[in-house]
């Protein structure tokens, strides 16, 4: 149960960063674990770059070490889990 609560919190934190990365784009009502960056959110390259930059800045993710994996992740949930695993030191 605690794992589910943690995952929801991770997704919620990532959703906040996505909204920042989307800038002046129309706000997205719902961002859930299964939400896809391109198909559902319509994120352009600039939005993805901004999000990566924010992940580094706000979550301490090393882009030098993890860029290859990060660009392959297509959903909010997968990204949240990946960032959480880095934070947990897995």
């Amino acid at each position: 149960m605690s794992a589910i609560i943690d995952e929801n919190a991770d997704v919620e934190k990532l959703a906040g960063l996505i909204r920042l990365a989307m800038g002046d784009e129309p706000p997205v009502a719902v961002i859930a674990a299964q939400t896809r960056f391109t198909e559902d959110l319509g994120m352009q390259s600039i939005n993805r770059l901004m999000l990566l930059s924010l992940l580094e800045q706000e979550c301490g993710v090393s882009l030098e070490r993890h860029m290859t994996q990060l660009v392959e992740l297509q959903t909010v949930g997968d990204t949240a889990r990946f960032v959480a695993s880095l934070t947990a030191g897995h």
């Binding site: 600039i46 770059l49 901004m50 990566l52 930059s53 580094e56 882009l63």
Partner: peptide, 8 residues
């Protein structure tokens, strides 16, 4: 942003 772009 250029640095993030380049890292790809």
């Amino acid at each position: 942003l250029g640095r993030v772009l380049e890292l790809q």
